[in-house]
Amino acid sequence: MSITQLSTEILQKIYEYAKIQDLLHLAQSSKRNYRIYLGRRTHLLEQAMHNSYSPLPDLYKLVLSSEPDKSRKPLGTEIRRNLIVNRLIETKAMPNLTVELLTKMATYGKIADRWTELYPQIRWRHNSNNRRLLRPDEQERLRGAIYRYWTYNTLFHDSTYTQFDPDFPRSQEDLRLRILRTYTSIELIQLTEYVDKMRQLIQIDLYPSYSVIRECYSEPVPPKTLVALGWGTGSFHLHLVYDLLKYDPADLLHLFDETSSKKERMEYLMAQGISFADRPATLKDSILMVLFERKVLLEADRKLSDEDIQYGIIDTVDKSKAGGDRGNARYAHDASSDGSFVDGHQVSLSLWLDETGEEDD
């Protein structure tokens, strides 16, 4: 039977399983299909966005964090940032999807979706026999971690913040801690895993140290070649990597897909401005502070494999080892609705925290 002979109800049901581009293309295939689409446009658009780029609440908050300030009042930077954080925390529901909002969400969503394709290559870098495509629920967790990472970088790793307040949080009222407290401990674990993989991407693929360059060759590497390809050694290189974690996912994707030489990546780094250099990213330390507040203990053990990480982005082989269903875990519901400090109950999670640097000569 041709699709043109299907009833309106069946076609609308098909639309509900489509991704955003497929939905729009199908709606444009005939006048009848377009009328059927218009009949439930809002519902179908929301469902298509969910199918393509979920979780939508985190994606919407990312869009809000990136919105320019439309107020004409002469507000100070700290006051303006506080207003944005309050708005993000107070946002509880998705608005109606206008064309303008849909376009903005799709822009970020496409980049996050591209990372779901690249992530297995990074995640199973040293264990390629187990490499596979991410399952739909894993893709959603990864996109959520990307949106949260991007929101934090947009708010707290911009040129103004890194220039005037580059230090780590010093009080419980810090805006960085407030926004992170609105996430559950499981979401923070997933965010930590994503940050760690982006650190590996920077450290090995984009801005490799001299030791990484040496490992690529079977013969000794001449000093000139090291300088031409590598980005330093020891603590200097480690500090560079943590500085570059201020790159947002779009920056990292551009560097991974569009650049191949040290010159190109140096030019991209210099274009970020003077304040970008020598200012470490604060996200991972802020996450650890929030988890410490909740008395969630992370077992830092470099002998753990990625498959041993509890409640990470990727499903563990044995879910019972991680306490069973993620949704029933007690630290899946410990977010603070208003970002305030909440004393937690001590629990222990296994997470691979590799804080070591290079030990080159």
Score class of each variant (00 low, 15 high):
residue 68 P to R: 04
residue 55 P to E: 05
residue 92 K to L: 07
residue 117 E to G: 11
residue 45 L to T: 05
residue 123 R to S: 02
residue 112 A to K: 00
residue 40 R to T: 07
residue 49 M to D: 00
residue 56 L to T: 01
residue 102 L to Q: 13
residue 93 A to I: 14
residue 73 K to R: 15
residue 34 Y to G: 00
residue 95 P to C: 05
residue 70 K to Y: 14
residue 62 L to H: 04
residue 51 N to P: 02
residue 124 W to L: 03
residue 38 L to K: 10
residue 51 N to Y: 01
residue 124 W to E: 02
residue 72 R to I: 13
residue 66 S to W: 02
residue 51 N to R: 03
residue 65 S to G: 05
residue 55 P to G: 09
residue 79 I to E: 14
residue 60 Y to F: 11
residue 126 H to G: 11
residue 99 V to K: 10
residue 110 K to F: 08
residue 89 I to M: 01
residue 72 R to Q: 14
residue 73 K to T: 15
residue 71 S to T: 03
residue 113 D to K: 02
residue 110 K to S: 09
residue 35 R to V: 10
residue 90 E to Q: 10
residue 97 L to P: 08
residue 35 R to I: 10
residue 96 N to C: 12
residue 80 R to T: 10
residue 123 R to K: 09
residue 100 E to C: 09
residue 105 M to C: 03
residue 87 R to L: 11
residue 64 L to K: 05
residue 81 R to Y: 06
residue 51 N to L: 02
residue 64 L to Y: 01
residue 37 Y to E: 08
residue 55 P to K: 08
residue 64 L to M: 09
residue 67 E to P: 04
residue 33 N to L: 11
residue 45 L to V: 09
residue 45 L to S: 04
residue 101 L to G: 07
residue 61 K to L: 09
residue 97 L to V: 14
residue 46 E to R: 14
residue 119 Y to Q: 08
residue 66 S to Y: 02
residue 38 L to A: 04
residue 39 G to C: 06
residue 112 A to I: 00
residue 50 H to K: 12
residue 103 T to A: 11
residue 77 T to Y: 15
residue 63 V to G: 02
residue 41 R to G: 06
residue 90 E to L: 07
residue 82 N to H: 13
residue 114 R to Q: 11
residue 44 L to Y: 01
residue 67 E to C: 11
residue 81 R to L: 15
residue 96 N to I: 14
residue 93 A to K: 15
residue 87 R to G: 12
residue 37 Y to N: 06
residue 88 L to Y: 00
residue 68 P to K: 05
residue 76 G to A: 04
residue 101 L to F: 07
residue 107 T to Q: 09
residue 123 R to L: 04
residue 71 S to P: 00
residue 105 M to E: 02
residue 75 L to Y: 09
residue 58 D to S: 13
residue 80 R to I: 05
residue 39 G to I: 03
residue 120 P to T: 05
residue 75 L to V: 07
residue 106 A to R: 12
residue 111 I to N: 06
residue 100 E to Q: 14
residue 75 L to E: 09
residue 41 R to D: 06
residue 63 V to D: 02
residue 75 L to Q: 06
residue 96 N to L: 15
residue 123 R to D: 03
residue 107 T to G: 07
residue 89 I to E: 00
residue 67 E to S: 13
residue 99 V to P: 01
residue 38 L to G: 01
residue 57 P to V: 06
residue 113 D to E: 06
residue 110 K to N: 10
residue 73 K to P: 07
residue 71 S to Q: 02
residue 84 I to W: 08
residue 126 H to E: 15
residue 104 K to V: 05
residue 42 T to E: 15
residue 97 L to H: 11
residue 35 R to T: 13
residue 70 K to S: 15
residue 95 P to D: 04
residue 71 S to W: 02
residue 56 L to E: 00
residue 59 L to T: 03
residue 89 I to V: 08
residue 35 R to F: 11
residue 78 E to A: 12
residue 124 W to M: 03
residue 68 P to Q: 04
residue 80 R to E: 11
residue 104 K to D: 10
residue 88 L to M: 01
residue 126 H to Q: 13
residue 81 R to D: 07
residue 61 K to W: 01
residue 75 L to W: 07
residue 87 R to V: 05
residue 63 V to I: 07
residue 105 M to I: 02
residue 99 V to S: 10
residue 120 P to G: 06
